[in-house]
Computed example of a mutant assay.
Amino acid sequence: MSKRLGIPVPEMIFGDNLVLLRHAPTGWTLAFNAFDALDAVGKDASNMLQVAYAQEWASSRDNVKEVVNPFDWSYSSTYDGTLAPGSASFAPTERAIPLELLKRRDPILFFDEVVLYESELDDNGISLYSVKVRLHEKRMLLLARLFVRVDNVIVRVRDTRVYVDFETDEVIREYTAREDSFANVKQALRMTGTLPDDLTIALRDPNILAPLIPIVESRLESVNLKR
């Protein structure tokens, strides 16, 4: 996989894991897999991050002139799923995912979480791409989430939500990217009243961090599969 991608793979790679949604009547298919997720990682130096002590480290090694085969070592993928060939494409929409329906206490028929890859970034933080699926009788929600935290540098949360309405055969995909400096996120945590002893745990939980981080990119799109 590393050879095909052209970049090193994370230390925890789950290359056989797959989440796949298929519309039986039309064959429309949207999948999430590790290879395509990593293929959407930057493969040059344009978006490389530096760890907090990088400048100090470099100044003590004057003979180090360049990085060999630079790539985005934070594994900050922009991946939002893979449409199978021949599947109808998403188109921009203003119709948002109906959160009120998802907040209802309808029985959950199926739930699972699948991890595609994870890295501890050489003990400088975490990069994790996972997919959660929640199925109800009339609807389902998929959440594909990239969580990146480079200690003392930056925090990123990139969410792809895929909502499927079984009654209308409509699929809505929402992509939201959030990003802020590590210092700002840590300060926002303190302002919520989180005790200092809990900061380490909180900084590992994207469910806690995401609402505190400003949105830097978002888009809504949909496809109707009704025949």
Rank of each mutant, 00 (worst) to 15 (best):
W57T: 00
A45S: 11
V19R: 08
I97S: 13
A52W: 12
K186Q: 07
A177M: 15
K103A: 07
D198V: 00
R156S: 12
T168K: 03
Y53P: 01
L18A: 06
A58R: 12
A188G: 02
D205N: 12
R190G: 05
I201L: 13
F110N: 09
R173S: 05
K103P: 11
V41P: 09
R161G: 06
V9K: 05
V157S: 12
L5S: 00
D36E: 09
P92Y: 04
D123I: 15
R134E: 15
S127I: 02
G27P: 01
I172V: 04
V185F: 08
Y129E: 02
A54F: 06
F182N: 01
L128W: 10
R104D: 15
A58K: 03
K103Y: 13
L21V: 14
V19S: 01
L209T: 01
L146W: 01
V148T: 08
Y117E: 06
S77N: 07
P98R: 04
T200G: 14
V150R: 03
N33P: 08
Y53G: 11
V68S: 12
L102C: 09
V67Y: 10
D205A: 11
I201P: 05
S46Y: 15
N184Q: 14
A202T: 08
M1T: 15
R161H: 15
L220T: 01
S181A: 03
I13L: 15
M48H: 00
V131G: 02
V67E: 07
S218F: 03
L199E: 04
V41I: 04
D198I: 04
A54V: 00
M191R: 15
G15Q: 11
L5G: 08
R95S: 11
D44R: 05
R22Y: 04
E11T: 09
D72G: 04
L199I: 10
V185H: 03
L18N: 03
S59H: 06
D205F: 13
S46D: 11
E120I: 13
T160D: 00
S76N: 14
E221P: 01
R149F: 02
V171D: 05
L18I: 09
A91G: 09
L21T: 08
V133C: 10
N184I: 07
S181D: 08
D106A: 02
R227A: 05
I154L: 10
I7T: 02
W28L: 00
T192K: 01
D36H: 09
N17K: 11
V68Q: 13
